[in-house]
Design a protein around this nucleic acid. Structure first.
Lengths: 201, 201
DNA sequence: TGATTTATAGCACGAACGTTCGTTTTTAGT
DNA sequence: ACTAAAAACGAACGTTCGTGCTATAAATCA
């Protein structure tokens, strides 16, 4: 890895941390350059435009998400156990990833959903990836015979995502201490409703 | 209503519409003054600071929410029917309220959850109000004998809120056409699990 | 080591930011 | 209609925004 890639990576690390607190649209070149200990123009040269930088930050966040949430969950056996692992990893993934704030992708989703452009596209693609990944895990649970064969996969993913979103809001805005417990309870209720009859009869 | 209050109200109307698209922190005095057809300084004088303006916008949004979601739902009879009415009103309330974008309070929740100060306090108070209101409606459903007496009210509100959040994300970011149908399905599954046994045996 | 590419810094730009101030216009009360 | 009060304006402040240029410093390679 050349020197350029190295500092670029360092910048993205700082940027992700900052974005988790102030959002992707709240990221400014000047503030980021200060954090990274370099000049505005020097930092700027790595991306060419602010928009490119924002997209790079989102990509970085996505990769960090995979490393923190998805990859470790693969150690749990396919099926409901793995879905549960994804949930528990997900709902405090920014803490695990040592980010000082909340999920940058989620914040960006709220910031850019009404502002068409490349950044919005990147956010949508990123979150769609997450849903696709979830859907695969659900399908595995069906194949494993733990969820009913006629389970509406997209509906399951939809409700699962709702649990994630409200848990994050509970943690970050309301500082609810028992948000993750509520998330688990909601999850158990969800899988109970979609469970294959043979599994827990 | 004096002239001052009148224009202030007009400003807040424009501000709410703008905030629904660019967020509360994306609101700038200059852009808002343009939309409102007046000078920066003239507009500024109505609030004294940007922070005060942001808080005023959030309050305006909250009131609009009550008028659009809560008040109409009171026409539905207490119990599950009213809860369902709240849900259906909620998940497209910005359309009903003629706002061009998404829910400003929700956007602000993601923008300010990691930035302490009066604005964050206002957001937290506003959303807490929503949850309190929901909790009351749930308690009425219990009293009406439609939900089990041992229903965990806060857990119910938690899961209900999750449905709302994921539905809004589905509508605004993913442009899912069937998001509201999924929301209703999730709601029916929720009330089925918490339903009093006598109600639908 | 010397040559060359690459990375960073410095500086300046026009625009927009929130805010202050003094003046002018408009409203409200008599 | 005249006056006192309220409201809106226009200009300017200092700062930060994103983005260009040009020069210097550092890393890469022969």
């Amino acid at each position: 890895m050349g020197k350029g890639e190295e500092t670029r990576q360092g910048i993205l690390d700082e940027a992700l941390a900052l974005a988790s607190q102030v959002g992707v649209s709240g990221l400014s070149i000047g503030a980021l350059a200060d954090k990274a200990g370099m000049s505005k123009s020097g930092l700027f040269a790595h991306f060419g435009s602010k928009e490119e930088m924002q997209i790079a930050v989102l990509r970085e966040g996505q990769q960090r998400f995979v490393d923190t949430v998805v990859r470790p969950a693969l150690k749990s056996p396919r099926g409901i156990a793995r879905l549960r692992a994804i949930l528990t990893n997900w709902i405090d993934w920014t803490r695990r990833a040592k980010l000082p704030g909340g999920c940058p992708m989620n914040a960006a989703a709220n910031e850019f959903d009404d502002q068409p452009g490349p950044v919005r596209d990147a956010v949508e693609a990123g979150l769609a990836d997450g849903r696709r990944l979830l859907a695969n895990a659900v399908r595995m649970a069906i194949e494993a015979g733990e969820l009913r064969p006629d389970t509406d996969v997209d509906q399951f993913v939809f409700e699962f995502s709702g649990i994630v979103l409200v848990t994050m809001q509970g943690q970050r805005l309301f500082r609810e201490k028992d948000a993750s417990q509520r998330a688990l309870d909601a999850f158990e209720r969800l899988v109970r409703d979609y469970a294959a009859p043979s599994a827990n009869a």
